[in-house]
Each structure stands twice: as C-alpha cells, then as structure tokens.
Design a protein around this nucleic acid. Structure first.
Lengths: 152, 152
DNA sequence: GGACTAAGTTCCAGAATGGAACTTGCTCGG
DNA sequence: CCGAGCAAGTTCCATTCTGGAACTTAGTCC
C-alpha cells in the first residue's frame, strides 16, 4: 500500500494521518500554534526546505487546515492562518509535547511551557473521560471495531 | 536541515516527532493499541512493506517504545509489546482519532469507537487542565518560550 | 542604480520507498 | 521422506521523495 492511499481507509486515525501524518507538517503546526503565519518564518524556524514547505502548505490549504490570505498587495504577500479544523489539531500537538517532555527531556528542562490562562497554572493537559471526568488510562479503554480498517 | 537532525533540537515536540513522527510508525502504534504484537499482523493490517516495517520496529525497540521478546523458540519467533514509554503515546493516538472522527468522517460513522470501561460510555476523551479541570481551549493557552527551539 | 525582502519555483544528486523474490528454521499432511 | 506452508526477516531494483542551492518576481529602501 502506498501512503497516498491511506486516506481512503475507513479508519479515522489513518485519515487524520493522511493530512497530518508527516514529520514536517507537525512541525509547521507547532509553529502555527506559537503564532507563526508567514512562509519565511515557518521556514527559518523549522529548518525545512522551501520546496517541501511550499508543497505542504498548499496541501494543508486544500485540506482546509490553513487558510491562505494576502496580508499585502504590491507586492503580493500571503500568510497562512489556522482554520477551525486546524485549531482542532491542538490536542495532537499537546499530546506530543507532553510525551516529549516526559520521555525525551534533558537536564535543562522543557523549551516550551504551557500556561492555562484562566487558572494561571503551567500545566501538562491530561485526557479525561467527558462522561465521568476520570483521567484516561489506556488499559481502561476498549476499542470497539465496527468495520474492517482496510476496507474501502 | 535533515530529518535525522530533528531529535537534537531542544523542542519536545520535535523530539517526540523524531521517534513517532512517521506515517507508518503511527499506524503501527494504532495496531499496537488494538492488541497487535506480531510482525505479520502489523504488516497485513497496515499494508506497509516488510522492509519498512522491519526498519521501524527496530528503531522503536531502540527508542524503548516497544520491547521485542520471543514468544517461541524453535523456530524463534518474536513479538513486539508496548513498553510504558510506548503506552504513554496513547493520548497522541486518541487525539488523532478524535480529530479524524470529527473532520474526516464519512456517512458510515467511525470504524472504531472507544469505550471507557469504568463508566461504560462510548467517548471521545477531552484534554483538560489538571489544575482547574476545565476543558482546554487552544486560545486559552499561552506557550512560554524558554529557549530557542533551533539551538542545540 | 544596487542591495534587500518575501514567497515561491526549478533543478539535480542522493536518500527513502514499495513490491516482489529469497532465506531460515520449523511444522504439518500424506 | 517429500513438498507445502508459515513467520520473521533480508535483499534487490526501479520509482518517488528530499535537501540544498540557484533563480524569479514584484516591490521597498538607501
């Protein structure tokens, strides 16, 4: 199976990955959540090649994760802003951040910390059950398969 | 910058991605969380090539995400089990699943549902602030940069 | 006029990938 | 005993993808 076919799968994880399951895309999203909007800023802060950045941004705009809009005519210049669909990827980034902070840390401590404005605390958000409010433990979750994940 | 250098960055997201920021790796993890442990099962359920699967599993074992252990001598056969480090990636997968369910759905509904055993509900876990318990809204979070994300 | 900027595009050599064939050690059916 | 089958890889090749550097376009600043 080629990667490009993965989005045709009925699995939501696979479909999400068809959009977002790319090394560079996730780094671009990290920057977007830090407020970056411009091509050159994405490029210099992630260190990716222009080639790949241009390609990824185009794809993300097509997927509706970013919106491309002019911030200047003469000369024409564009910026990339997260849409609601893009903003909803925040939990993915936070989950990666938490895991990196926990398992890939060095002595100097995390480079980025998250402050929850309403309560003012520096936090690592946790996943909880929206029904009972308990923190999620993987072993307390049962995945129920409704369809073959490979079917079309 | 080459991808292989990304792990040397002080950013936890980048470091997490150096391990897990691969299309196929995340699909392998999806299967692992559904209980899959064996090479052939990973292969047939994800559709990836043996070549790439073998390579990724080796790397994940080196990183401590999976543990490789024999489940049979004569002939020698191995299985791959998630370690604690691997299990901690659950929130990443759940976040992707949630996003896929929400934004990439089709008419037939999700292929996988998650049941929270303690309360019995089918749920989409949400990220909350461990301090005040509120659901996380990206706009209510301020990222505080402690160091340059590109420095060594 | 010349240097500089931002947002791309183009080109190339080298790295990564998918697919299919092959290997190893063993079990099973006849 | 013989051939088929299986699981977990490994090897090979043709195709695709990447990083890096150079180039383009339209305009501003000195």
């Amino acid at each position: 199976m080629k990667w490009s076919e993965i989005g045709g799968t009925p699995c939501s994880v696979a479909r999400a990955l068809s959009v977002v399951g790319d090394r560079w895309v996730l780094l671009v999203l990290r920057e977007a959540f830090m407020g970056v909007r411009r091509f050159e800023d994405f490029r210099s802060r992630t260190g990716m090649s222009r080639r790949v950045l241009a390609e990824r941004l185009t794809a993300l705009v097509e997927e509706g994760v970013f919106e491309r809009r002019a911030y200047s005519d003469r000369p024409e210049r564009f910026e990339y802003r997260l849409t609601a669909k893009g903003r909803d990827l925040y939990p993915v980034l936070v989950a990666l951040l938490n895991w990196g902070d926990h398992w890939m840390a060095d002595e100097e401590g995390p480079a980025v910390e998250l402050v929850h404005d309403p309560c003012g605390a520096t936090v690592h958000p946790v996943q909880t059950c929206p029904r009972c409010g308990q923190a999620i433990d993987p072993r307390a979750m049962t995945p129920v398969l409704k369809r073959d994940l490979r079917a079309t």
